[in-house]
Design a protein around this nucleic acid. Structure first.
Lengths: 207, 207
DNA sequence: TAACATAGAATGAGCGTTCGATCTAGAATA
DNA sequence: TATTCTAGATCGAACGCTCATTCTATGTTA
């Protein structure tokens, strides 16, 4: 299966961007199916519908493609937490959104790539840096959100306590990535409900 | 049909087992540092202190080494849940053990390998099968344990509800593997305490 | 001596990457 | 308008290297 570009490119710039995106889409598919090291430039180029050599017109090397994929994946996470923070009744918004977020995390295809990214971060310092910076931003956002919810409920937590709660919340969510791979038959809807309950309890934990 | 002696000389047998273990230890280190596909037989053999070709005296191919590493890693998980199940006051045992288990999960070195295994399971059906069988066993054990705790507290849950709770518990634990990679600076002791509280709440959720 | 342990070279495939040759579309020019 | 020029897009062959695996020869030991 080959990824073709359906949009005609009026300018040179858009053509180049489209081509880049085409490569990234092909690479994401390959990385999902074979991992960062198992996916070859030859395979990526075949799916992207261009020669292997031509890939190097748009990316310096394979590492740069990996970095771009990682950055792209993390960007969606960043917008999600930012969006969450913007909601007016934050507690309600958080718990409502949670069910949706849980189902997203439980999609096996996207989970595979996300897990691959963390695995790569454990051994590739460049990827680790990108991942950790994005994570730090997310945590900061979540800390503000959770602090707002908690102080509305009369809790005056230390920053450390808030950070710990964020970690538990994050573990809960990210753990789903592993669960959907280890147990693809799990009941997605009911697990989402249980997670909502657990988040609710977490927000009421003593300081 | 000729029957050969099933028990060869102990020295030969132990020597072979030791050599096998030597290879597995070297492979585990390489897989942690470079991933399953990034680690070469040459590198593994160098760390194991033998020639590359000699590895094939003990393992059919690289895939067999991966399978052995995966099976070995999952075995420790199986004994842990079995051990948990054997405790008399299960609720107390579960929560006590939890803190210890959390700290184990937060060890970055072992986390890297565990995450690598799940990432490989997402694309290698042989590894997936091993992982999913072990996971099913763990879930079955945990379901019995949780059901015992819940019914002692007066809850009569459906098997489905219990399975969902197990999923949340598992997600919480396994999520820590990703957290310790994404945020190595997290406060391990305090996060462990928060997790204990969360598990406590989970066990009191409505049916 | 017989059987096993081990080394290390050989093999062929595939890797990431480079590079020079072609193609193509639009600007410049006549 | 017709022709030439040009710069980027694109290809595909080639390179040097490493990979997993096999094979052969040599120790080693009982």
């Amino acid at each position: 299966m080959q990824i073709t570009d359906p949009t005609p490119h009026t300018t040179e710039a858009s053509r180049a961007t489209a081509r880049r995106q085409q490569i990234l889409a092909a690479a994401a598919q390959c990385f999902r199916e074979h991992g960062f090291h198992g996916a070859s430039i030859a395979r990526i180029s075949k799916i992207a519908g261009m020669s292997a050599g031509h890939i190097y017109h748009y990316f310096e090397n394979k590492e740069a493609i990996i970095a771009a994929i990682v950055a792209q994946d993390l960007e969606t996470l960043l917008t999600l937490t930012a969006e969450l923070r913007a909601a007016c009744n934050v507690r309600h918004a958080l718990i409502e959104r949670a069910a949706e977020g849980v189902l997203d995390q439980l999609d096996p295809d996207s989970a595979a790539l996300k897990v691959e990214i963390v695995a790569e971060a454990a051994r590739n310092s460049h990827v680790a840096q990108i991942v950790r910076e994005a994570d730090a931003t997310c945590r900061r956002e979540l800390m503000v959100t959770i602090r707002a919810i908690r102080s509305a409920a009369g809790h005056d937590d230390t920053p450390e306590a808030t950070a710990d709660m964020v970690e538990v919340l994050a573990a809960l969510f990210e753990g789903l990535l592993l669960r959907t791979i280890r147990n693809p038959e799990l009941d997605r809807k009911h697990v989402a409900q249980r997670i909502q309950l657990a988040i609710n309890d977490l927000l009421d934990q003593p300081g």
